[in-house]
Design a protein around this nucleic acid. Structure first.
Lengths: 345, 345
DNA sequence: GTGAAAGCGCTAACAC
DNA sequence: GTGTTAGCGCTTTCAC
């Protein structure tokens, strides 16, 4: 780098600096077409010397191709979506594609805005959480003319591609597992989020699963805001004071479940003998608690990977025509230490 | 929306649809200049009817202005950076600016790559974690011709603007607080990350702080990978078996600190009487533990906000010339329940 | 293997 | 208030 330029450098500057046409410089920088080794080296040297950074805005406009993948998720702080992003990143790592993340805070209007802004960059594909969207959002997605992968959930009809698990099914499975261990008096705690459709579906599946055995949830509570761990603690205390007959607590996520677990340990309550517990998500972060909370993983990493693969495939010169675009993954139940009343050891 | 178009719509399509020049359509869509209310409505109606989404690629190229802010951070899973992003988002929320996040995984070469890719989109500014960068990275940052805010840390010389705390100072303060409570046999646990400069500086500050009182760390351990909570648990057990004389454990982050805390509670050890504990970061997530871990907050939200404000100011028609661009924030120490041996209640 | 011309979809600047 | 012209910095296409 000779001198800090005030105006961003252009291809032209590199061209001038090494006496080669802009076109050839462009070819070298994009590693396309045949360029003699000699000129290639000269160009590269000049570009480096000047500190040239290509202008993708101009490049994308000219080539009509943008190597961006829009990833639209409800939240970052949640522990679940960063893991999905990791999956996406892993797959796109050594490709020209780059993920760009937008966050909706579980708000449909914000989802609409964020999508609109992302589409205005003409990305190569969209990965978006959930199957429930506003009409406007669905319309944009349909008309964008690019691959759209709806992720996390498969209980519904996708616009295009879909990768996820059945949360309804997950709730049912958990109900079955709990009943199998002989628990009968069941309480539920979750987020007060009418817009978290996946949590809702899990809850519905759960009650359905119980209903098959003629059992109903005996108490329930919902929270919003605050530290999930603290909320789990408080809510558990409240619920047990209110409904001391309960012998199982199902939490809509691992964090509040962990709060409950810590509270019960504090109280010296026998887990899972007197009371059993389960959460959802298999949050790695929680390994290291005094007991392992029973949970179900949501296949977050795999979902991110599969979604990215679908988008990627579509940008390939020869896309794999057999690549599945509607993928249902199966969550694994971990009994941990809090859901095995009938220990047979 | 009448029909799903195969080719993305252009201004021209809207122009045709409502019998108004492209230029006027453009003005309406960008809410610029004077347009009669009547035509304004016609244009808006047509655009909505067609489902037109503007092409920012073309727009940015023409206007030579890109409303993107590059935010480059080491990690997403860390709990600390999502909070910084929240701060950035809050400030940019109702502005034309949009953050775009890149993750480096604490790797200088990746930082270089990510920055290069982001700069190729010609963003309006860069927010980047840390003051330590490769020569190439520094050169790119210097020559980019846009505002650069280095965040998190102030122990060093910034390229341009800087917002953060002194981690060295934070370590010293913690040492002082610990000594003041009468602890004398101190162990340290942290990540094995030669590239986490802020953790390193905290550690250095900490040992300096102890040294002033003629005290040295008596044991130390470093980990990498895995669940921090579990690691904290294991490492604490190991360290106390190895060095049973220790009466204080300082952890480089709250998560391993929490693991240690849970382990010690398990063991029925008197906290903070027999052993005191402290972490770093003031992670909200941990509220709800049986005891509150002593910690120091890193002003993550404020850092994100201040950094965003600096970039934003620069894009304004009339920037505030007095806006501070080198900001040192002061972390707050929370004693919690694990650092008050000399209780005076 | 290299270069020249055209144009991607929009906006700045100016004319009316 | 509205339209016209030129051109942003690249890549596509085609000529040599």
């Amino acid at each position: 780098m000779t001198q800090p330029p005030k105006r961003p450098l252009t291809l032209r500057d590199v061209s001038d600096a090494c006496g080669v046409s802009e076109m050839t410089v462009s070819r070298v920088l994009r590693k396309r077409g045949d360029v003699s080794e000699a000129t290639r080296r000269r160009v590269l040297a000049a570009a480096k010397e000047l500190g040239y950074v290509p202008n993708q805005i101009a490049g994308s406009l000219a080539s009509q191709r943008v190597n961006l993948v829009a990833v639209i998720i409800p939240s970052l702080s949640n522990m679940v979506f960063p893991e999905v992003l990791n999956g996406v990143n892993q797959v796109l790592e050594d490709t020209p594609l780059q993920p760009v993340v937008g966050v909706t805070d579980y708000m449909p209007e914000k989802e609409e805005r964020v999508l609109y802004e992302m589409l205005s960059w003409r990305p190569s594909g969209v990965i978006i959480a959930g199957l429930e969207h506003s009409d406007a959002t669905r319309a944009m997605l349909k008309n964008a003319g690019i691959p759209v992968v709806e992720i996390m959930d498969v209980d519904g009809r996708p616009i295009d591609a879909m990768v996820g698990i059945s949360h309804r099914r997950a709730g049912q499975e958990m109900a079955k597992a709990i009943l199998k261990e002989g628990y009968e008096h069941i309480g539920f705690m979750g987020t007060k989020m009418p817009l978290d459709h996946r949590a809702r579906k899990r809850f519905e599946g759960f009650t359905e699963g119980l209903a098959k055995a003629g059992i109903e949830i005996e108490d329930r509570a919902f929270y919003s805001g605050g530290s999930a761990l603290a909320k789990g603690r408080e809510m558990t205390q409240d619920m047990l004071e209110r409904s001391p007959e309960l012998d199982f607590l199902y939490y809509s996520n691992d964090m509040i479940g962990a709060g409950g677990l810590l509270y019960l340990i504090d109280q010296g309550i026998d887990i899972p003998g007197q009371i059993g517990l389960a959460g959802f998500n298999n949050v790695e972060l929680l390994q290291g608690l005094p007991r392992q909370l029973a949970t179900m993983d949501a296949c977050r990493l795999e979902i991110g990977q599969a979604a990215a693969r679908i988008i990627l495939n579509d940008t390939l010169d020869e896309p794999d025509p057999d690549l599945q675009t509607q993928i249902t993954l199966t969550p694994t139940l971990s009994l941990g230490d809090t859901l095995r009343r009938n220990r047979k050891v």
